[in-house]
Write a protein that binds this DNA or RNA. Structure first.
Lengths: 169, 169
DNA sequence: GCAATATACTAGGACATCCAAGGGTTTGGA
DNA sequence: TCCAAACCCTTGGATGTCCTAGTATATTGC
């Protein structure tokens, strides 16, 4: 993604849609495509910041989630539900985090099907450092104005609720 | 993604951030996380619609791009730039599309380094059908209100420009 | 004109995501 | 009580993305 393009490719796509008679859906198409691209940009920024910690965003999210859990441990299926990713993605992340000594698996005390994941001391320390780095280098300068942030939270919150992510509110 | 959660996990994360004294970046964190999750939801919807055509979003985007190109052909590096993905991702997509008979590689007439990708007749037909399906099943019912769509286009457009995607406007 | 630099594409590898399937554990109804 | 259905996690496979190199072709500069 070296040199900036002379024109916005998504705006061009929107114009193409309109030119082909799909004007009624051109704007939503552009908005959705813009979300895809924005996610890509943000993910790249985040992973750049996490790289020195040898973390990816997926693994960081799991560490952060665990660091906020009261007991410091969560069943894998719970983590899967809260992170809203497929159970196999959690398995994958835990495998790598465990290999790095950041989390540990332990059997659930009463349910033999369930595996608990727990932060190790190093895991907790690294989660703190990584969060501080993300706060300082990404979130503090998100690229969105304060009003836009509020608007995004509201609009995307409604979207996620309607999509079936959660029920409350 | 089975059962809806009782509470919005991103709103919870935002509260956690505030509780830990990072209130100044809690909102941007939530907005960015929401963008990530929204992208995931949208991508899943799109891929569901494309599945009957045996297309993924990455391959569809390439087909659609070619279908709008004047000559119906583009150099791979141009496609990479316009789709804003790594050149190897385009190589990957072209490999599969070519195997499916939807595009063809041809040498650039004057530059021996460059490879042109061109739609085949089937590729053009499939692109039309897939676009019609996406328009009907995803874009026409994006889940965003008209005002929100406009707002997203504007805010994310500014973000992408500031991020260096393009210069104009 | 020729060597050094730049550009274009591809190969191989690391990661992440999902789906399908399999093996173990619990639950619940006959 | 006991077996079927439900649930939890893991394995294996398909895709996509990126990065790092490597090969081939163009361009530049001396």
């Amino acid at each position: 993604m070296g040199t900036p393009l002379p024109r916005d490719p998504i705006a061009d796509a929107q114009r193409n849609w309109e030119r082909h008679g799909w004007g009624d859906v051109a704007a939503p198409m552009a908005a959705i495509t813009a979300i895809m691209r924005t996610q890509q940009i943000l993910l790249a920024r985040i992973e750049t910041v996490l790289k020195p910690f040898e973390l990816t965003f997926a693994r960081y999210e799991l560490l952060a989630l665990l660091s906020f859990a009261r007991s410091g441990a969560l069943p894998m299926n719970k983590a899967s539900a809260l992170l809203q990713v497929h159970p196999t993605s959690v398995t994958n992340a835990v495998d790598r985090l465990e290999k790095a000594g950041l989390v540990a698996r332990s059997p659930h005390p009463t349910d033999g099907r369930t595996t608990l994941i727990e932060l190790t001391a190093e895991g907790r320390t690294l989660a703190k450092k990584a969060t501080a780095a993300l706060n300082a280098e990404v979130f503090s300068n998100s690229g969105f104005g304060s009003d836009d942030v509020d608007h995004l939270i509201r609009v995307l919150g409604t979207f996620r609720r309607d999509a079936g992510d959660f029920t409350e509110e």
